[in-house]
Nucleic acid binder design. Structure first.
Ligand SMILES: [Mn+2]
Ligand SMILES: [Mn+2]
Ligand SMILES: [Mn+2]
Ligand SMILES: [Mn+2]
Lengths: 218, 218
DNA sequence: TATATAAGTTAGACTAATCTAACAAATAGA
DNA sequence: TCTATTTGTTAGATTAGTCTAACTTATATA
């Protein structure tokens, strides 16, 4: 069996390679909070497993096998999150840390059962898609909120890079997935937006916040 | 943080010391399936943590601190089992292996939430008591079925040493916790018993089976 | 193009968890 | 009480995962 440590490296490589096919050792060591020799050493091991391909001084590449394996870990992570949220009543800001641990649980049946109990959910509590058992993932093509012009009505569907701080902020503002926002005004100076939603009128949201909103027009 | 490995040693020591205050290295290495030097080496580390006290060639003793820590792991194990059974629909024969993994999850909140959702259960799916958050455990004083005389009516309340094989056997016989058994006859030759229960008449159960039954008279 | 800086590698060390081989202490039984 | 057997210890090795220090290769820029 592969260790939690290796699974965590694989997941980091997976997310890095979503942004950029080619990954540097430095990026990896930074993300994993380890020294470069440690990352280097680990990459050699992951190459032996067949999860990445690597040659000295060249960039790290995730193999198909590695990608599939990583998706299955992400599947377990996101199923855990939605389970914690829907069945166990945790807030969307609480689930990530717990899921970080649960994703390494080795019982297939446990996650199948979660999936069933949840009615085969498509997304986690932050709107990210849950890969299927084959490791395939279907991304909805949402629009980044910062690309939308004023006068439009949109529905918040997902967040990218959903940090606990952002989630707590949104809780305080009573904004959640599904919330419909009307864009009254966009301030050109700092790209902040003024929106109406639910009972709230003329709420200002900074660019720092809304750049993380993935929405659909309604 | 203490590793899963150390937690598993601690749990083994805890169960061994339930039977016998003093534990030998050989017992421990046997139960853990490791060599004696490995167990010896680990015991030195657990002594440093303060979970056991040990002097060369003397028996291993669990400290109060070790006992408490162990109880809290058992608490997480048993809460997981009853959660898997009651909330997730797993059979009592399926839950142990999954819980063996879940007991090492580090989120306190997760287990508190399980506890709440389950309505503060007293026992796991095999009738074993769940220690409280302080590590205290209240054992019911059930009677071993083999001590009961014929002509009596009893209720199955718990199992000791509930192996998967036994649980599957009981599933096939439709015997579960709460099942009321009437003892028609005890065969002196092999200590097997003939019982009536639910729709079943004159079912023979071997001593191998019934020696694991903890019951109360009704 | 030369060289300063960034990126990556090697070497050597450490802790955790494990093993086998060899030895020592304790104990049981003759 | 003596000795054979069981129990426990030491020594030395291995693999996983990590580090720092020193070095090499690649790259960027003057
Ligand atoms: Mn997450
Ligand atoms: Mn993880
Ligand atoms: Mn169990
Ligand atoms: Mn365990």
């Amino acid at each position: 069996m592969n260790s939690q440590t290796k699974e965590n490296y694989l997941k980091s490589i997976y997310f890095l390679s979503k942004k950029n096919k080619e990954i540097s050792l430095t990026e990896l060591s930074d993300l994993m909070n380890v020294s470069k020799p440690t990352a280097n050493n680990m990459i050699k091991k992951l190459t032996l497993i067949g999860w990445v391909s690597y040659e000295k001084y060249k960039p790290i590449l995730l193999t198909d096998k590695g990608e599939k394996e990583a998706s299955l870990i992400v599947r377990k992570h996101r199923l855990s999150e939605i389970f914690l949220s829907k069945i166990m009543g945790f807030g969307w800001e609480e689930v990530h840390d717990i899921a970080e641990d649960m994703e390494h649980l080795k019982s297939e049946k446990l996650f199948d059962r979660m999936n069933e109990l949840l009615g085969f959910p498509k997304v986690d509590p932050h709107g990210s898609p849950i890969p299927n058992k084959s490791g395939e993932i279907y991304e909805e093509s949402y629009i980044n909120f910062s690309k939308i012009e004023h006068g439009n009505n949109v529905r918040l569907c997902a967040l990218e890079n959903s940090s606990k701080e952002l989630l707590v902020y949104l809780n305080n503002k009573n904004i959640r997935l599904g919330t419909e926002l009307f864009i009254k005004h966009i301030e050109p100076f700092d790209n902040s937006v003024v929106v109406n939603y639910d009972g709230y009128k003329s709420v200002t949201l900074s660019y720092e916040v809304i750049k993380n909103f993935l929405v659909e027009k309604i």
